[in-house]
């Protein structure tokens, strides 16, 4: 029979500091990803490539290079824009149900904040993880697009920066939303159908914004995807001017900052009560 001994338990009492704490969270995501990466492969990498093939090569076979396509083959014209569309879809996908699940189904956010890690660090870890995923998927896209002959200049490597920035600008507000909803995430359906879908179609990805009716153009300025697409094409095809580039970057950074600020508020509200 085991003898009862005096208490010997001693907590470590260690509190991890901020950047390191967020990074620990990223490591947690990585553990998950190592087991499940194959299941996300399709939506994250194959899907944008399929759109590139279908629209760039299939539909593009019917398109004559013209001023509307910057006198480029349609496939080449489309590639830097599809790169950013991929970022948008990845960002929204990674920021919606996975984040809600952390609060609602899997409840791992509650488990994490029961440790010395704070809600703010948890959020930072989530955002860093999403940025890494988007960046990785972007590299894979560029590689495959190059093999398909959709890339003509190394400028597309610069487009990757625009892509990650756009992804983060779209991710942060959705994370804030996911931290707010309590039902089964019906709001995300609305986001997918009424925001992501029309944004994908009408932000100059497939055809120039100038083809839209005049009244619609100011609406397009609100679309982070349009700003990202402009940046990405400028990087890939050259001809960037400082003014517009600064404006696009400022808008995207602003949206990201707003989203983070809202998300931080919502994370605290929900996890620290």
């Amino acid at each position: 029979m085991p003898q009862v001994s005096a208490p010997t338990t001693q907590a470590t009492g260690r509190v991890v500091r901020s950047p390191h704490a967020a990074w620990l969270r990223v490591e947690g995501h990585w553990q998950w990803y190592r087991r499940h990466w194959h299941s996300t492969l399709f939506s994250s990498i194959a899907q944008p490539i399929l759109f590139l093939v279908a629209m760039g090569m299939g539909f593009g076979s019917q398109v004559e290079p013209s001023e509307a396509t910057r006198n480029l083959p349609y496939l080449v014209y489309l590639a830097p824009a599809m790169l950013v569309v991929g970022a948008l879809q990845n960002a929204v996908g990674e920021s919606s149900y996975p984040v809600l699940s952390g609060f609602k189904w899997q409840k791992d956010y509650w488990a994490v904040t029961a440790t010395p890690i704070t809600p703010g660090q948890l959020l930072a870890g989530q955002q860093i993880w999403i940025a890494l995923v988007i960046g990785f998927n972007g590299c894979a896209f560029v590689l495959i697009a190059t093999l398909l002959g959709a890339v003509q200049s190394p400028g597309i490597l610069l487009s990757l920066l625009a892509m990650v920035l756009t992804g983060m600008a779209c991710s942060a507000p959705v994370v804030a939303l996911a931290a707010t909803v309590t039902n089964d995430g019906n709001a995300f359906n609305g986001i997918f159908r009424f925001v992501v879908m029309p944004m994908t179609l009408f932000s100059g990805t497939f055809f120039p914004v100038s083809q839209l009716p005049e009244w619609a153009q100011p609406v397009v300025w609100l679309s982070p995807l349009w700003h990202g697409t402009e940046l990405s094409r400028a990087a890939a095809f050259g001809g960037a001017e400082f003014g517009p580039v600064f404006g696009h970057v400022a808008y995207l950074v602003g949206l990201f900052a707003l989203g983070i600020w809202l998300a931080r508020w919502r994370f605290r509200r929900r996890l620290v009560v």
Binding site: Q62, F202, F207
Partner: peptide, 17 residues
């Protein structure tokens, strides 16, 4: 959803092809 697509084809894709 199909309506958005239709609209995009009307004003956009349809001008390219």
């Amino acid at each position: 959803e199909p309506l958005f697509y239709l609209l995009a084809f009307q004003v956009g894709f349809g001008k390219l092809v």
